[in-house]
Design a protein around this nucleic acid. Structure first.
Lengths: 168, 168
DNA sequence: GTTTCATTGACAGTATCCTGTCATTGGGAC
DNA sequence: GTCCCAATGACAGGATACTGTCAATGAAAC
């Protein structure tokens, strides 16, 4: 460990770095959630609904599988999935591999709703890319996000030997 | 706008970039919140409480001011601030400049609680820094977070002419 | 075939944060 | 001095997500 008397200033510097990261990530998530919400609203969706619906566009998935893919708890996805189904955006299909774990699949209306978001999303993504100074910079920022996630995952795994995923 | 027929693949690429960013930011925020929560728990604090308490360590601030500094709504901070006061971690002081807008200040117990988190935070920050490959890499990632936030802010401001802060 | 365990869904409870609305306060416009 | 507006706090309501717990299901161990 580096927590020696000689390294007190290093500790303080890293603490500040960590606190700044927590703050920045919280702010960024809030901003992106708000932006996604505004993009999805004209289609009658919320940001969370969009995320779940988008996750099953490539193919049907069980609720728990969606949760794993998104890194959130099963219950959160379950709630949104039930809402999507009750609104007709998605439907549960029988799962040949598991009787209880029904597969969530988008309906035609669901696909149409996501498609309606497309143009606005493309325009916003283009503006964001431009504001970042180019696609390369945006891609680099995304890479940084993922490296941070991976590092956190690694640290947590080293601590507990368990993955960080909630509800796991 | 770049949304021409010729740039359809560019649109798709940027859309994917944007979706990936939303997903990664959400995941990262969740991970950092969980990590901060674990660090704060031994001191009897939650991640949200810690954030608010930490914001007033340098000096007393009104609730609305804390909210602005954190980029969240006044109501969220108000709720946490009331809880902090009711638990004795912080106290409201009279504000000479505004009778209603009392200033939130940490109590001695509050400062002690934050201080108790310090060592764990330093150790975790050191491990995170190591997992990122060094402090420089961690600092670079933080820079990327902030650039993304600033770009989102700029795009939103260009859209509405208003800052993105919630509850504003 | 039976037992055991992990996965999944369902439900209750809680934490966090947002929007909308209203009265109070303070400062600037007139 | 009066009026209007922005900022603030208080309150109600809703959205999102996590933990804990339980029963049902499927698969693996024996």
């Amino acid at each position: 460990m580096t927590t020696t008397a000689q390294d007190a200033t290093g500790d303080a510097r890293r603490q500040e770095l960590f606190r700044g990261t927590v703050l920045a990530a919280s702010r960024l998530d809030g901003q992106l959630l708000a932006a996604a919400g505004e993009l999805a609203r004209p289609a009658g969706l919320t940001a969370a609904w969009w995320q779940v619906l988008d996750a099953v566009l490539p193919g049907p998935l069980p609720v728990a599988g969606i949760a794993r893919a998104m890194g959130v708890s099963r219950q959160s996805v379950q709630r949104v999935a039930d809402l999507l189904v009750s609104h007709g955006w998605a439907a549960y299909c029988t799962n040949p591999a598991h009787r209880r774990a029904k597969l969530l699949a988008p309906t035609a209306e669901g696909r149409a709703a996501v498609a309606r978001i497309g143009p606005g999303q493309a325009a916003f993504a283009a503006r964001l890319s431009a504001a970042m100074g180019g696609e390369a910079e945006l891609a680099a920022a995304l890479g940084a996000l993922r490296r941070l996630s991976a590092a956190l995952e690694a640290v947590h795994a080293a601590d507990t030997g368990k993955p960080l995923e909630p509800g796991a």
